[in-house]
Design a binder for these strands. Sequence first.
DNA 1: CTTGCCTCTGACATGGATGTGAGGTTTTAG
DNA 2: CTAAAACCTCACATCCATGTCAGAGGCAAG
Lengths: 125, 125
Amino acid sequence: MRIGELARRSGVSVRSLRYYEEQGLLTSERSPSGQRHYAEGDVERVLFLQRLYTAGLSSRTIHELLPCVDSPSLENSRAALERMAQEREKLSAHIAELLHTRDLLDAAMAAARRGKECLEEHEAA
Amino acid sequence: MRIGELARRSGVSVRSLRYYEEQGLLTSERSPSGQRHYAEGDVERVLFLQRLYTAGLSSRTIHELLPCVDSPSLENSRAALERMAQEREKLSAHIAELLHTRDLLDAAMAAARRGKECLEEHEAA
DNA sequence: CTTGCCTCTGACATGGATGTGAGGTTTTAG
DNA sequence: CTAAAACCTCACATCCATGTCAGAGGCAAG
């Protein structure tokens, strides 16, 4: 499949796909004329990359983790495995942060609602 | 307290504090000579702002929520309350995403560990 | 062959929070 | 009084994923 189709099927812009390649996160076969061709599995790979970006990882960080994902049995994955565990911890911490933040929002909303009700009682009176 | 102390106590750069003010998220009393002065409570406010930034909200979004937080009983908080509920939903969705991503990382790590063990058996043999 | 769409490279633009530096005033400590 | 440290404003720089545009080539259908 060519880049346009991969873009459509993964919901990522053509521009971004080229960028991922530039960052070493995605590879492609080139036709004699230089056009990129992708395998079916690349759709899922791109979705995975998107997921990591959404989780706040940078291209560089993702690049460091990929050896672990791509060839999980090579010895270079020892370092990648550590790196991955480290990112997992960061992610967990971030999730905890967000849960806390959500609680704060809930508290603020509850307070606001109480205030609003109080105001409405005044209006009703 | 002056801006340097607030920065130190909240762990945010002086630059950022001025930026928050510029974005309407933080206010300060000015001394006759123009220096900013803050109240004790502003430390916590800045921490809260940081939290919202970390949760991925933009200055503009935070600004829209603040009426709700600052004066929970005014009528302008009706819109802010909706906005807030909306952001809360986004946040929940994001958290769910992150949990899923963490699961994927866990799966990748498990696979990598299996591969590594297999390799080590080879070495041992 | 031509028209239209897709792709290529390369480069510049964007947005948002923050860093950084210049040039000048205020505050504080000795 | 003086020197150091903190503050002021203004403006330009940075990072990073993307958008966007220009100019050129590739490829299928009429």
